[in-house]
Design a protein around this nucleic acid. Sequence first.
RNA 1: GCCCGGGUGGCGGAAUGGCAGACGCACUGGACUUAAAAUCCGGUGGCCGAAAGGCCGUGCGGGUUCAAAUCCCGCCCCGGGCACCA
Length: 842
Amino acid sequence: MNYPANEIERKWRARWREEGLFRAPDHPRKKYYVLEMYPYPSGRDLHMGHMKNYVIGDVIARLKRMEGYDVLYPMGWDSFGLPAENAAIQHGVHPEKWAEENIAGYKESLMNLGQSYDWEREIATSRPDYYRWNQWLFLLLLKRGLAYRKGGFVNWCPSCNTVLANEQVIEGKCERCHSPVTKRKLVQWFFRITAYAERLLKDLELLRDGWPPHILKQQEDWIGRSEGTEIIFPVEGKDLRISVFTTRADTLFGVTFMTVAPEWEGLDELVSRSPERARVEDYVKEALSRSEIERASTERPKTGVFTGIYALHPFTRERIPVFVGDYVLGGYGTGAVMGVPAHDQRDFEFAKKMGLPIRVVIKPLDGPEPSPETMDRAYEEPGIMVNSGEFSMLSTSEGIRRVSEALARMGLGGQTVAYRLRDWLISRQRYWGTPIPVIHCENCGIVPVPEEDLPVLLPKVEDYIPKGRSPLENSEEFMNTTCPKCKGPAKRDPDTMDTFVDSSWYYLRYPDPKNDKAIFDPAKTNAWLPVDQYIGGAEHATKHLIYARFIHKVLQDEGLVKTPEPFLRLFNQGLVLKRFFWCPVCLRVVPDAEANAHPHPTEEKLEMMSKSRGNTVPISSFTEKYGVDIGRIALLFAGPADKEMEWTEAGAEGARRFINRLWRLYQENPASKEPLPENMDQAERELYSLLQRTIKAVRDDLSRFSFNTAIARLMELVNALYAFEKKGGPVFSKALRDTILLIAPLAPHLAEELWRGWAGETESVFRKNLPEPDERYLVEETVIIPVQVNGKLRARIEVPVSTSQDEVLQRALSEENVARYLEGKEPRRVVYVPGRTLNIVV
RNA sequence: GCCCGGGUGGCGGAAUGGCAGACGCACUGGACUUAAAAUCCGGUGGCCGAAAGGCCGUGCGGGUUCAAAUCCCGCCCCGGGCACCA
């Protein structure tokens, strides 16, 4: 008789809901907060790739409940934003309708999985009761000087018709639609995340033990702290200065030119009276129309034009020609660099192209000074300063220090730190997002919307298609308002906020999701914070996870949260891949069943399961056939949860056999609560010992996310129970009961049925604690010692655990095979690792 | 180019200095069956051997150690991140 999954699972899902079993208290005694990154609701047809993500969280939530914690395990929806809006446009449905329908569908799918969420705490970012507080947060940042408006060149996606944050540009392309990103000059809202760069970097130390190393590394690189020197070059004949950032102040005497980025702020003023002005303007225009990818290509030869302007060397007062060139990044450092062709490869290439002189000022520690005539590339290694006036003969590190000090004394710069991180551009020229709560008044300028007037409701408009400016601008009703200060006519801000603002604080709302007086009650939120275990994809390493850490620190400074970091531990689940056949002629996926009969040759591919690839296995098609618990086991047994895995029918088959084997074991044997005997016989002691070792291993494995090995241990236990079945008895019965508890986090429906059905218990298995291992039985009574002679395995001997080294050695020496390899010689050395191995060296 | 991971049977994987290949898949022998499926019991890294046992074996080459899949050095391959950051 097979496990009747559908009937049993439906029953317990309903019962758990009726009983409110997974409701989290507002004031936990011993808390554990588990959270999966909330999804943007993309529809009801979830696939096995989604399921893996949510199942991992559910196992942890149930495990922690069974370890005696009060668990907060909520779910909500990232329902505002580009992905949702693009999908709505594609389907010709209004985004609001689209979002609400998909929330309902996605929720139903998750409920059908029996996920143990506390659904009473559900949130959706596209609803006014949430985005009202998103607006409140914006005003808080404004108040704290962390939100500002700035004109300048920003990343622009010509296909999504909106600006993008730096973090949303992947290899020069839009992260959503992959169109090449260009630059546009616009006035936009920014969050001053760079003010927190140092703390964001330093506090990574607090996460050292809880986050995967590669995510920490990515954040570190993204923040990109770099110690260097600011050097100010006065401009000849003008009251202007060009400031540069360099990590190699020791090469300052090798400067033969300077280059500013096309976006450089002072450029207009710099060339205002220059004869080269028209040429510069043409160059800038062309450079900025280039796509990011093209501009960033190191393959492309360096380009630039002379500005007609000279700067003066801070030490030598030498005239230095100033160029504009697009190899200089506008957003990093000061947007201008000093050109040292002898010691920087990029400057070298630029100098060669422009026919500029090369001046050697660093020589290798152990070699002659390179000659400018024969150099074929820049000498970038550290060395000894030469031709550098008073600084000559200093080493690179000493030189950097001394030059910086001298500059500081002269008021022309000094030591400084540059970050790769840029401020966070949060304006979007799109409809489906939180309206920015400020008012533009001709008399009063920018006026924040008073808190009591929140929320600024997103109007329901018919034409929400992005056209390059916010669709809200067309809504007279929305745009026209009165200034809160002077009561005169004024306009609202037409842009909406980046959805990453919504997601940077949502985890703080779950402890107090219905609060209509405040973003949250600090008492309630601090009772649950920080999130003990966060689960989600690695793609958020430098986006959501940086933004959320930043906002958390702002709220900490405001006194609303107490911890410096929001997420104590982070787990990145690996992707679920699916093999499929692709026909390069028909340009479509060929179903497995048709692959052989297909008229064209097909390509076999193994890629991430996704709707756009057409290689998904829908959750419902699987669970209708096998049930949720078999799916859970199949996903978790396939390999380490943080590694990618291939979804196969064969793998699911193994899970099905295991669950059915387990199920039958209980159908064949009645429950019994007979006490354990005073004296167990040997077979019983062995089974009991295996049970204790399994309890320990399963607890350890689950808490370190090693689900595959936990399941393997349980399989071994079940195999042993089958071998014991005929004998039965109290030890066997005890093992059957404990096995239910051990499997419960992994196969919750099955376990609940066995617990409340088979074992006749009245209270849920998820209100019970996992068994603790009985220490006395953790070690086996006898142990098999492998005996090596000169490091090679020659025999195995079985001895009682507590046997002394001498006795073990005597036993080993009496082994025929050991004696043979000793060839009658005396052991020169004996290494005995108690209970593990014996090595005899002759 | 730079920085992280990783490479173990036919396959997914286990073992983080101490019996390599746990557990499962596939394959295979047997039991049950009129038969098949399902299920149950057994076998299964390679080579030699009737067996006992031996030799080889964790990408390649070297090293440290009584002992290396595991640590160190060099190389090859695969995956990921960053990429004109001055």
